[in-house]
């Protein structure tokens, strides 16, 4: 393949280092303030850029669904080198579940006509881990999940897919969807030039209606599951803490003896 069009799904999420919390009434994750590029997706962005380079040309288009026309996370990925982005943002999308998200992403991805779609195996905030495969099914495409290595060979990709015992080598013709695990590649840091260039890269913003979807399929209306309650877990209380003064290992030995492990 001499030119490859890659779509990378990128989720923009509240900073995990901040205080994550659920809204008291809706039980949805509070997504106010600036969102950032999910670190899990930075691997997909890097992988997409590398594969487009290896294919000898092509470009990376980002696809994201996020509230309030959020683009901060997209700008980070554009600064890494993605060419452009499609953002779906619509007040009707609050409370959308995994399948609803997949419907939105699938419709947006279709517009880009990609050869390859990349996503993370799971997002850092929702971690349902089902959105990418749902997208593949909705688009009628094959998928390979949990990949730790991806190589392009002509109009196919060869993927090393994690298994319980090691990995399988899986071959799939394009177009296809592949999910990548963390650590597969080393995401590049955006350069100063990249950051400046990202400011003027095109971000196409679409509403649910623009995608030809009905708002009843998405948002809280389309989500056929509900949170019943959120309660503190039974806390596991801390035990004995000792500072090692050269004899710390003795405490471990004594403990292991007490529970009859040794």
């Amino acid at each position: 393949m001499c030119s490859m069009k890659v779509v990378v799904c990128v989720k923009q999420i509240p900073d995990p280092a901040g205080n994550l919390r659920l809204d008291q009434a809706s039980h949805n994750l509070v997504r106010e303030g600036k969102l950032i590029l999910d670190e899990s997706d930075s691997y997909g962005v890097e992988m997409g850029l590398q594969l487009a380079e290896q294919a000898g040309g092509g470009e990376v288009t980002l696809v994201s669904m996020a509230p309030n026309s959020e683009t901060s996370g997209l700008r980070t990925a554009l600064a890494m080198g993605a060419a452009n982005a499609i953002l779906v943002s619509d007040p009707a999308l609050g409370g959308t579940d995994a399948l609803g998200t997949a419907k939105i992403l699938a419709a947006a991805i279709k517009r880009a006509e990609p050869d390859l779609i990349l996503a993370a195996t799971e997002s850092s905030d929702g971690y349902t881990g089902t959105v990418p495969v749902q997208v593949a099914e909705l688009l009628g495409l094959p998928s390979v999940t949990f990949s730790k290595k991806v190589t392009v060979a002509g109009d196919k990709v060869i993927v090393e897919r994690q298994t319980e015992l090691g990995y399988d080598e899986v071959e799939v013709g394009l177009p296809a969807l592949v999910t990548v695990t963390a650590g597969v590649v080393e995401p590049r840091y955006p350069s100063f030039k990249g950051i400046m260039a990202a400011k003027s890269k095109p971000v196409e913003e679409l509403s649910v209606a623009d995608l030809g979807l009905d708002t009843s399929e998405v948002g809280t209306a389309g989500s056929r599951q509900q949170v019943v309650s959120v309660v503190p877990a039974e806390a596991r209380s801390a035990g004995e803490i000792v500072t090692d003064d050269g004899e710390g290992f003795q405490h471990i030995l004594a403990y292991l003896e007490r529970i009859k492990v040794i």
Binding site: D97, A98, L99, A102, Y127, T128, G129, T130, V131, P132, V133, Q134, A136, E137, L138, S143, T145, F146, R161, Q162, T163, E164, S223, R224, Q225
Partner: peptide, 23 residues
């Protein structure tokens, strides 16, 4: 919730147009 299980759930959910609860 295994590698294959998650794939099956995603495919099935989209085919049936049914939501899925994970984790």
């Amino acid at each position: 919730q295994t590698y294959n299980g998650r794939d099956i759930a995603g495919r099935l959910s989209a085919r049936l147009d049914r939501p899925v609860l994970t984790n």
